[in-house]
Amino acid sequence: MANVTESRVHEARFTSFGTTFMGPLLSFFAQNLVKNVPEKAPLYFLAREGYWLQQAYKHYLCGADIQRESHYLLVSRAFLFKILLSDSRSYAYSLKSSFSGAFYDLIRTRFLLSDSQIKQIFGEEITQELVYLPEDRKKIIDTLNQHKDRIDDVITPSKQAYLSYLDTLGVIQQDTLHLVDLGYSGTIQSLLGILLDKDTHGHYLISSNPGEHVIDNHNATMQGYLKENVKIGDGYLPLDRSMFLESLLTAPFGQFRGIRLNTFDPTQFDFYYGRKVASQRYFHELEQVMIGTLDYCKHSAKHGITFETEELEMLLGSYLSKANIVPRGVTHIFDIDDDVTGNGTVNALQFFGLA
């Protein structure tokens, strides 16, 4: 009996944390989506963060008794880098971050190609050459262009399967694609616009690059609801320590890495994911946190509770700057993987000295 009581107290701690910390933030985000997105436009929630962002949105709609269409869309930067590897329009994004090491490691970690695929495209000798970004950017692009046909042979099955998957969600039919993510620079939005040759409108909690942009002859609008025109390192705490939010706003699976048409039923898809971090291994505990968050989103919509940006910034500032304010029993779920930039798995609380 004591163990049952202790377990319930533990769960209540998780739920309470979700209510007080994430509840107001996601309620604010959902409220702004309702106000700013055209009523008949479907919303597509992106990547791992989109999993809970969509749930919060749906609970807010339920509380407000509003009907709107939304979908959770599997996507990741690295996967888009991969299926656009032969498209020179994508290099402004995929070759932007710094790198030093073997060409093989660049292609394997940033573009998700397997060992056999890398050897099939580039052969043995070239893969061991050392490359540095941004210094060797032109050299790398030249190499990719020289092997374009082989790259296409390797990536086309995944690319075609992914386009079929997007078609099942109604993405292909949209004139302007309305996308939702936590933030910040709009890389996934830009890459989807390139892949689909479509206008896009990105809705973010924080947008580093807001406004209207032209990307390959298509309009890309980026809009931030909590803050705009801030970049990492500018001193805006919710962005500088965004890893804190990302570690909680995660789907139950690892990074989206691939898709194939099912061998036995070509109308179905097989999805492939990377390794799980702590918040995914202990997803049942993260769900307890989010129960409090989602209930609060529904409650705030039903009772017309709203928040100003200054109130949320003050709330976030407390959690993101003061040590030990996060309940001790929750700290182990704050892991996040950062493979695209080569940092591996990082615990957000430990990284910022908050635990």
Results as ranks from 00 to 15, higher is better:
S90V: 09
K82Y: 00
I83P: 02
A78T: 14
E69L: 15
A64L: 06
G18M: 13
Y93T: 04
M22Y: 10
N36K: 13
R110W: 05
A64C: 06
S88R: 11
S98E: 13
T109M: 07
D105N: 15
F79Q: 05
Y104G: 01
I83A: 06
V34W: 01
H71P: 04
G23L: 09
L53E: 11
L25F: 11
A64D: 02
Q67N: 12
Q31I: 03
L84Q: 02
F17Q: 00
L33N: 07
Y72W: 15
F103P: 09
A56Y: 01
Y104F: 15
Y72K: 13
F81K: 02
K82G: 00
F81T: 03
N36R: 13
A30M: 10
S97E: 15
S76Y: 10
I83F: 10
S114A: 10
A30C: 13
E39S: 14
D115F: 10
G23H: 04
A102M: 14
S88P: 06
H59W: 11
Y51G: 07
Q117L: 06
T19L: 05
T20W: 10
C62L: 08
S76T: 12
L33H: 05
L73E: 00
R108S: 15
L106F: 12
R77I: 12
E69C: 09
D105W: 07
S116L: 07
G18H: 11
R108Q: 15
E39T: 13
A92F: 11
F29C: 11
L53N: 02
G101F: 07
D105L: 14
Q55H: 14
F29I: 08
S114M: 05
L113F: 08
D87Y: 02
K35S: 13
L85C: 08
A41I: 02
P42Q: 11
L84D: 00
A64F: 02
A102F: 11
S86N: 06
S97R: 10
I66R: 10
F111I: 03
R89W: 11
E69W: 03
L106C: 08
S70L: 06
F45G: 01
G63V: 01
A102N: 12
P24I: 09
P38A: 03
T109R: 08
S88V: 13
A78H: 04
S98I: 05
G18P: 05
G23R: 02
Q55A: 14
Q117E: 15
S76N: 04
S88L: 09
L33Q: 08
S70M: 06
G63C: 04
Y44D: 11
T109D: 12
I118R: 07
Q117C: 04
Q117N: 13
F17A: 05
S90M: 09
D87K: 06
F21G: 02
E49W: 00
L74R: 05
L33E: 06
F79G: 04
H71Y: 14
I83G: 05
Y91E: 14
I107D: 00
V34T: 04
Y72E: 08
